[in-house]
């Protein structure tokens, strides 16, 4: 795409995103505002996973562990420190906690490759799942309801539209940062590792460190997404880190476009809209969903981004 056209698209998308709550209010469909927040939060989760899988070639089937851990940072703080309810404090804390967790877990997982990496990330996510399932002080199996959303100075976060704008701003900032990262020296090295790790190693790159940094950043962003989801739903439960949530995030990445900057967003939107539309038709909509996913694998392996990509030279 030519530069000006890309900018035009961006402007249109941004205008639509900003106008969405107004349109929903006029149409009397306020439901769509919180639906859009959900899409953006999932888009953030999928984008963070895309950094791992799409840019770095590290297929993780346990990314939801960080999603859930981020949510539990919010939930546990609301129990232990009901006074400290500023999002300016809690969200960065969720990011920091997950960065640390991801750093430690990544240091172990990244010793393995390929299938073993897939399975060891899954194993860690299962551990998270079972640990939080048995954490009875924080709701255990049943999860935990939050009394209210975190606060931001000068904003009424209880309003769905306000919360939507906050999520939109965070997502836009993260996506912008990911775009910079992708084009940066670090991003190129990551792409090189995905292409041929042995070669990168023999060029003098300490590939393990680059992968570990990527894993840490991805975990931190997933934690942020989890913290936002906890506020969006007012509820957290171990199900947020169950393995099918990790699977869904992976599905979104592939559906949207592996390694493409907008892939996570496109995939999350497509998946959740599909789910929304199909579930309106039949109780057994999941069969259709499964068939669509199968179709993607066999007929559109590049995902939605592939439909817009230039023809290969």
């Amino acid at each position: 795409m030519a530069g000006w056209r890309r900018h035009a698209w961006l402007l249109v998308a941004l205008a639509a995103a900003l106008a969405l709550p107004k349109i929903a209010a006029i149409a009397g469909q306020d439901f769509y505002v919180s639906f859009a927040s959900r899409v953006l939060i999932w888009a953030l989760l999928a984008s963070s996973l895309n950094l791992l899988v799409g840019m770095g070639g590290m297929v993780s089937l346990g990314h939801a562990a960080f999603f859930g851990a981020g949510a539990y940072v919010v939930a546990i703080l609301s129990v232990e420190a009901p006074g400290g309810s500023s999002a300016l404090l809690v969200w960065p804390l969720a990011v920091a906690v997950n960065a640390l967790l991801a750093f430690l877990i990544g240091a172990i997982c990244l010793r393995t490759r390929g299938v073993y990496f897939i399975m060891i990330t899954l194993a860690f996510a299962q551990m998270f799942f079972y640990i939080f399932t048995s954490l009875t002080p924080y709701g255990g199996d049943d999860g935990l309801s939050l009394a209210r959303r975190l606060t931001l100075p000068g904003l009424d976060m209880a309003g769905d539209a306000t919360f939507y704008y906050v999520v939109l701003a965070i997502f836009a900032a993260c996506l912008f940062a990911l775009g910079r990262l992708k084009a940066s020296r670090f991003g190129r090295v990551l792409a090189g590792i995905k292409d041929n790790e042995a070669r990168m190693e023999s060029l003098g790159y300490a590939t393990f460190r680059f992968k570990l940094v990527a894993y840490t950043v991805a975990g931190a962003l997933a934690g942020l997404a989890g913290a936002l989801m906890a506020n969006q739903n007012g509820f957290v439960s171990p199900n947020m880190m169950s393995w099918d949530q990790s699977g869904i995030a992976l599905v979104m990445v592939i559906l949207g476009g592996l390694g493409s900057l907008w892939g996570g967003f496109a995939g999350a939107t497509a998946f959740l809209v599909l789910e929304e539309v199909l579930s309106g038709f039949s109780a057994h909509w999941q069969i259709v969903l499964g068939l669509v996913l199968l179709g993607v694998v066999f007929y559109a392996p590049l995902g939605i981004a592939g439909l817009f990509a230039r023809k290969p030279r």
Partner: peptide, 9 residues
């Protein structure tokens, strides 16, 4: 990755 997606489906 494709295998995971397809068999997940």
């Amino acid at each position: 990755l494709s295998q995971v997606l397809a068999t997940f489906a």
